[in-house]
Design a protein around this nucleic acid. Structure first.
Lengths: 246, 246
DNA sequence: TGTGATTGCTTATGCTATACACAATCATGG
DNA sequence: CCATGATTGTGTATAGCATAAGCAATCACA
């Protein structure tokens, strides 16, 4: 379980990249990283991230807790692998290939959002670094590919994808956590709560927003709000590309 | 410690809004919420969020652990109050009042970034809901105020601020965690690590980005990257406003 | 004056991650 | 063919965590 194949990455992560195929002495492993991760993901999906403890995952596998540490150096690594599995490979544009970067990125964003909504537990995992696992890189690949013919610099392309992915994750996190908070305490309604706290004198702009119905309790127009942010970002990118072309 | 003044919020949060001034029997409280939060923030600042446990905070205050629970119903509430204290009031534009929404929002973003860089522990706290504490609302107020004369709907203004705050937080989180990861294992360099893992065949666009120097190991141009994302967003908002005006 | 609410404390419960030592396994070097 | 040493799974142990429950001291108000 030493971590050197030149990458400086933990062994479990290198395994995820398929770079560990050693034949070694000792008993045959009864588990596989894949099976462990799969079980943990299943658990997170059904009972939430809070239920994912090493003890619990091991119990689910019918194995002692410490057995897991033969495959993973720390829980953080397992979580990282869970993330990668949860995100999965980006869907390939099926048939009707989107033409143009804008359609491509828009599709990318909606696909990503869809994944986060399907696996909301992913949003409970704090981001601890730049994308480094295979599936995350695959998503990055698809996003960068959409920008292939745009004339942006490589650095700009990367920044664009980071900007977009940050937006999607952020927005998904906010809506999901708000929805969960609402379910938890039936009485909590953001808009009406805020209106009770906010003083017209001290917070005139926020008061105006409340009065204008901007802070709504129900979330029927959630998709519309997502679209709004997405279109703003795409517009901003469009402006840059026009500047670049002239 | 019952939670009803009509808002449905925990008592400690209502206290933060200054809505609890009861005179009650029983011994005078030896602590104050403020002092507890202050101590916890100090601890987070010097030793990181991981060091903030109820046991530790109590020890720091020279008090039994359970004493804290007379002021806070759960650790989550303390954390929420810590966040509010850490974010603080937004700096008031001093003297040279920014003219125009664009300058205003740009300033807002840089100010917010500055706060997050000063209190990086804030980035370790997952967002659990929409902004509800006084200082968070104050930041929202300042942002909305900058959009006062733009002709956007209230709902759009709010979306804009959410978009912007999400971007800043996201970007700060990524850079800080990357920097910390780099400090942790001296050998870890994102760019070179990625180049070892990424296969030209399978990930051509990512390979091109690496080859193009987009994924750089050092972070000298961090500010430039932040500016890039910020300008893209502001451009996008500008486009919307032009559409709205015509 | 005394009643009941409130504070802070002690103690206890059931979790968590993970360090360590050990027995069983098995590919490989002699 | 056999011994060596690496590797696996296990049981046990430690140090930490949030927080529930009960108890003694305090003090505003009826």
């Amino acid at each position: 379980m030493s971590d050197d194949s030149g990458t400086g990455l933990p062994a479990s992560l290198e395994a995820a990249w398929g770079r560990r195929s050693r034949t070694s002495p000792g008993p045959k492993p009864g588990l596989t990283l894949e099976r462990i991760v799969e079980t943990a993901v299943q658990l997170a999906a059904t009972e939430g991230m809070a239920a994912v403890s090493m003890v619990r995952v091991a119990k689910e596998l019918g194995v002692s807790t410490m057995a897991l540490y033969r495959y993973v150096a720390a829980k953080d690594e397992l979580v990282e692998l869970m993330m990668d599995a949860g995100i999965g490979l980006p869907p390939t544009s099926q048939g009707n290939d989107p033409t143009g970067w804008r359609q491509g990125l828009s599709r990318w964003a909606w696909d990503y959002l869809s994944v986060l909504h399907r696996h909301t537990w992913i949003l409970q995992v704090p981001i601890t670094g730049p994308p480094i696992t295979p599936n995350q890189i695959a998503w990055l690949e698809r996003g960068l590919a959409d920008l292939r013919d745009t004339g942006l610099t490589e650095s700009e392309k990367l920044s664009v994808i980071m900007l977009l992915s940050g937006f999607v994750r952020n927005w998904a996190g906010l809506t999901v956590s708000t929805a969960q908070a609402g379910r938890q305490r039936a009485t909590f309604r953001y808009g009406s709560t805020l209106s009770k706290l906010v003083d017209e004198q001290r917070f005139p702009a926020v008061s105006a927003a409340i009065a204008g119905g901007a802070i709504d309790d129900d979330q029927d127009d959630a998709d519309a709000e997502f679209t709004f942010g997405l279109e703003r970002i795409l517009d901003g990118i469009h402006v840059l590309m026009r500047k670049r072309l002239t």
